[in-house]
């Protein structure tokens, strides 16, 4: 399977689609960074308005940590969408170009072949998250420096610089599980529908519905606590003053379970279906 994974990575790195996707993600990051800077002051004014009556502020909150946090906060639609397109394309392009048939004529395991596609989707998603994290931090910290981070989650939570950095890094890692989940789902959807355009539409639909349902509280225990749509903003729990680690671990473990489940479904569909 190692050779299959290497082959998939090789193909991914040689396709223009990959670099278009990376460029799109970096451009979006740049736009978010610029808007974060201009909006940052306004946001801080609103958040700190009441405190301003009783306090002077020493130090600035409009710093690199805030910029990185705002980038982090706004990426959970655009980033999964682009990654879903790339991940679905790993399968649909081969199906359309019939290289899938050509591959299946070689003496390789069908199961290993499709699992290697899933693994490459996961690896690519992780690489993109790391790239995003490193680039946003490099640009933000070099332009805006560091300092305290303020986050509003019902209360104003202030974090000192070192702690803010740790939490942000953990948030990116935690959020990467969400991104990986969506990437895996898109591969499964691609295996199911096979057609490139339909796969993109269905993947986007899945993402939109997940984002909409995230904000809905039905008051039903299994939905509010265990359904996968509710697990996708677990990273935000890292910005409560006291981090509820057990809740975070539980949510992430559950999300990984859902990810594996979707992968399993995709593998089963692929194995049972005729290639052509």
């Amino acid at each position: 399977m190692k050779t299959l994974i290497q082959a998939e990575l090789y193909k991914l790195m040689h396709q223009r689609m990959t670099y278009f996707a990376l460029a799109a993600i970096l451009v979006i990051e740049g736009i978010v960074l610029v808007s974060a800077y201009f909006q940052g002051s306004a946001i801080l004014d609103i958040l700190l308005d009441n405190l301003r009556e009783s306090f002077y502020f020493q130090g600035t909150l409009l710093n690199g940590h805030l910029m990185v946090y705002l980038i982090l906060n706004s990426l959970w639609f655009h980033l999964p969408l682009i990654l879903m397109i790339v991940s679905a394309g790993l399968f649909t392009t081969e199906h359309k170009e019939r290289t899938l048939q050509m591959m299946m004529q070689q003496p390789i395991s069908k199961t290993h072949f499709i699992i290697s596609k899933y693994l490459v989707a996961v690896v690519f998603s992780l690489v993109v998250i790391v790239l995003l994290m490193v680039s946003s931090m490099m640009i933000s910290y070099s332009l805006f420096g560091t300092g305290d981070l303020v986050v509003y989650l019902g209360t104003l939570n202030f974090f000192q610089s070192a702690e803010a950095f740790e939490r942000i890094v953990l948030a990116y890692l935690c959020g990467s599980l969400t991104v990986i989940f969506f990437s895996v789902v898109s591969v499964t959807l691609a295996i199911w529908v096979r057609d490139t355009t339909i796969a993109w539409i269905v993947s986007a639909f899945f993402l939109i519905i997940s984002n909409l349902l995230l904000k809905v509280d039905l008051g039903i225990d299994w939905f509010d606590n265990y359904f996968f749509v509710k697990l996708n903003d677990t990273w935000q729990l890292l910005f409560n003053t006291e981090i509820d680690w057990s809740h975070i671990y539980f949510n992430n473990a559950l999300l990984v379970t859902y990810t594996v489940l979707f992968m399993f479904i995709g593998v089963m569909i692929f194995r049972r279906r005729d290639v052509a």
């Binding site: 958040l47 308005d49 009441n50 009556e53 986050v151 989650l153 104003l156």
Partner: peptide, 19 residues
């Protein structure tokens, strides 16, 4: 010790949707 007004955020800024 002083009086301070409760913070009121009209839109969702920078965080999870709060109840």
């Amino acid at each position: 010790s002083f009086e301070i007004e409760r913070i009121r955020i009209p839109l969702q800024y920078m965080g999870k949707e709060i109840e």
